[in-house]
Amino acid sequence: MEARFPKLSVEKEFAQVTSRAETAGKTDQQALHAVLSKPENRYLARQICWVLSIQGLETYILLPRDPVDISQLLGAIRPTPSPDDIDVVVGLRGPIAPPEFCNGLMVPIVMFDQIYSFDREALIKSIPKPEKIDAKEFRPAAEELFDRIIQMTDNAGAMDEHRALNYLAVRYPTVYATAAAAFGRSSSLTAIDVRPSLLSSVRKIVEVIFCFTSRQTDVTEKFFCRVDVTEEFPFLVTKMSPYYDR
Rank of each mutant, 00 (worst) to 15 (best):
L189T: 03
Y172P: 00
E232N: 09
S201L: 13
R46E: 12
C211N: 11
M106A: 09
F118V: 04
S197W: 03
E40R: 13
P108V: 04
I133R: 08
D154F: 12
P140C: 11
I192F: 08
K222R: 15
Y116I: 08
L32N: 00
Q30P: 02
S187Y: 11
L165F: 09
E58P: 06
G94A: 13
V206G: 04
L168M: 14
R46N: 10
L168V: 04
F212D: 00
L32H: 02
E137N: 13
L62T: 03
A181L: 10
V206W: 10
F235I: 00
A156V: 11
I109E: 09
A156T: 12
L8N: 08
S214G: 02
F210H: 14
F14T: 04
R203L: 10
A169K: 02
T174S: 09
I124C: 02
T230H: 02
T27I: 00
F146L: 15
E100R: 14
I54V: 15
R226Y: 01
T27A: 00
A141L: 05
W50F: 06
E121V: 04
C211R: 13
F14E: 00
E231A: 11
P98T: 15
F146W: 15
Y167E: 02
A97Q: 05
D228G: 05
Y60C: 03
A179R: 10
E58S: 12
E58A: 12
E131L: 13
V202F: 13
T178G: 00
S117F: 11
A142H: 09
S197Q: 02
K7W: 05
V229R: 09
A76K: 02
T153Q: 15
R4Y: 14
F224M: 13
I86H: 10
A179P: 00
D119Y: 11
D147G: 07
Q72N: 07
R203Y: 04
N103A: 12
S37Y: 07
K12E: 14
P108E: 09
A177P: 06
T220I: 06
K12N: 07
I127C: 01
H162N: 12
P39I: 05
M240A: 12
V206R: 11
Q114H: 13
G104N: 08
P6K: 14
L198C: 01
P39H: 09
V170D: 03
V194Y: 06
M1H: 08
P242C: 00
D84T: 08
L123P: 01
D160S: 08
Q72A: 11
F101W: 06
S188E: 15
V35M: 01
M152W: 08
P140D: 09
D218G: 02
